[in-house]
Amino acid sequence: MNSTRYFCRTAKILGVNVHYEVYETDRTKPTLVLLHGFLSSTFCYRKIIPLLKNDFNLVGIDLPPFGKSEKSTRFVHSYSNMAKLVIELVQSLNIKKAYIVGHSMGGQVSLHAVKERPDLFEKVVLLCSSGYMKGVHPSLKVGSYIPYFYLGIKHWLARQGVLKNLHNVVYDRSLIDNEMMEGYLEPFHDNGIFRALNRMIRDHEGDLTSEELKKIESPSLLIWGNEDKVVPVHVGERLKQDLPNSVFYSLKNTGHLVPEERPEYVTEKIIDFCLAN
């Protein structure tokens, strides 16, 4: 078995410091780019990275302002700009072709990236991807310009609490332990994230439309939890209809965090899908 070279670095991309992690076993192997969801980080892939790293070189990216990436109030936190950031980072690593995996919000970023650069990203994997959401309500966008509006965001997230949020995204609550809670809480120890989230409200443009999705011809793998309370399974079924070259799987007794809840199944499907001719 090949040994894996691991390193994590920060790169300045589009004026913002982006944290990324690389697991490399063999440069001749294909590359998987991993994108997390809203209020998350590359931590969400902790269970499937060990299972994937023998078949792929892996690049996990913390999308700003999440994880260990910069909590900037100058960066434009739109999906299209995040996709541009991902494209530039991948190219800076001299990667010519890759597959891209996106969970939740990361699915929309992945779709934008594939839409812009189908030559760079040959296939896309969507894990409980966001879909068909409209842009932020105009009153919220106006509110984001009010001084100290970010404190309201902080208060709302604190009131929710990490345990309550995790209860909402997993079906089997016995999976929730201290390591999991701390891993998802860690990015919020930096108060700068709340100001950046305030900016994100302003920049959010909504998900790709059916018309835009139908133009994406790249092969797409969709995996959903039947008990997903955040992005219900019917969203995945609709995406399957709109993405012309897609396959769809749903899992019983599984919630929104499919990489955490069903790592072996997700890994098997990704390997079969990406390595198929």
Rank of each mutant, 00 (worst) to 15 (best):
N2H: 10
R5F: 07
Y6E: 01
R9M: 11
A11H: 07
L14M: 10
V18L: 06
V22W: 01
E24Q: 12
P30R: 06
T31Y: 05
L32T: 01
L34W: 05
L34M: 10
L35M: 03
G37D: 05
L39I: 13
T42H: 09
R46Y: 12
P50T: 02
N54L: 05
P65W: 04
S69R: 06
S72N: 08
T73S: 11
V76T: 15
I95C: 06
Y99F: 11
I100K: 04
H103L: 12
M105I: 08
G106N: 08
G107E: 02
Q108F: 03
Q108A: 03
V109D: 01
L111V: 09
H112V: 10
V114M: 09
V114E: 03
K115H: 14
R117F: 00
P118C: 06
F121Y: 08
E122P: 13
V124R: 01
V125Y: 05
L127E: 01
S130Y: 08
S130A: 15
G131S: 12
M133R: 14
K134M: 15
K134G: 15
G135M: 10
P138S: 07
F149C: 06
G152N: 13
W156E: 15
W156L: 15
L157H: 02
L157Y: 11
A158H: 14
L166F: 05
N168I: 11
V170C: 05
S174E: 07
D177V: 10
E179V: 12
M181Q: 09
G183M: 04
G183A: 07
E186Y: 10
F188A: 02
R195S: 12
I201P: 03
D203F: 09
D203N: 12
D207I: 05
E211T: 11
E212W: 09
K215D: 14
P219W: 00
E227W: 05
D228V: 02
V231E: 14
D242Y: 11
D242R: 12
F248S: 01
Y249V: 09
K252P: 13
N253T: 13
V258M: 02
V258G: 06
P259W: 00
E261G: 00
P263V: 03
V266S: 05
